[in-house]
Amino acid sequence: MIIEMLSLPFMQRALIVGLLIAVCAALVGVSLVLRHNSMIGDGLSHTAFSAFALATVFGFLPLAFALPVVIVSSFFVLRLSKNRKVHGDAAIGVLSASSLAIGTFAISVSKGVNIDLNSYLFGSILSVSWLDVLYSAILAVIVIGLYLFAYHRIFAITFDEDFAKSVGVKTEVYDAIFAIICSAVIVLGMRLLGSLLISSLIIFPTLTAMRMSRTFKGVVAMSAAVSVVAFLAGLFASYITAAPTGATVVLANLVIFIFATILGRITK
């Protein structure tokens, strides 16, 4: 069955894009989750939904329109999350709901445009193109390269931003890089996994890894591994049950998380 599954071109594309995005999301997720910024991914995925919907309605190239919109939103959200006068979580909530409303409204009132709302919200394995494969590969090279080159600086910022700044680490530059990468992960992964579920790919692997390792290095490595295993299990489950890939991947992540939690309690 696996050979049959992998002989299908759309499954090959989904497998490659999914694996690359799973690794990127997990790596970016470690820093976001540990800095208590994991909801940023959720807010941005809703913005991506709205951007894709508007691009389709107005006839723009979806990726070319969505990526800059989400990047601009990520800078905005990041700024809000650092502003002590504003409740960052409330602002993200407002952004999420508004984006979802704008996207749904645009799709509903547009005439002559045939859009499958479900595929935007929960992902569609058929929508992944070879161009997505190329973009995902470029993104993976950038993210893995960043982690290899700046691992210790990423650790310092994640652990204690003020201290990192005091020893000369350009925290604003890293924040901007993370915002762009997070946006790219969401925009590229959204068509496969859906806007409602893509952010869980950023959050789940880190939470699971934190139950399996007590070092930063361990959490980074484990998070990437968990994300890959959960994606493979989810993709296979999606193929045999014909359920949306986004849902099965998240369920696979949930099962691994519960298993890791129970195992952690027993071995404690």
Binding site: L34, H152, R153, F159, A164, V167, M210, R214, T215, V219
Partner: peptide, 22 residues
């Protein structure tokens, strides 16, 4: 304040080494 929460996964060596970044 110690910015990181008490459940931050890191070894003592990882943390102290970050002082050398400057």
């Amino acid at each position: 304040e110690t910015r990181p929460d008490n459940n931050f996964p890191a070894t003592v060596e990882e943390i102290v080494l970050s002082g050398c970044l400057g």
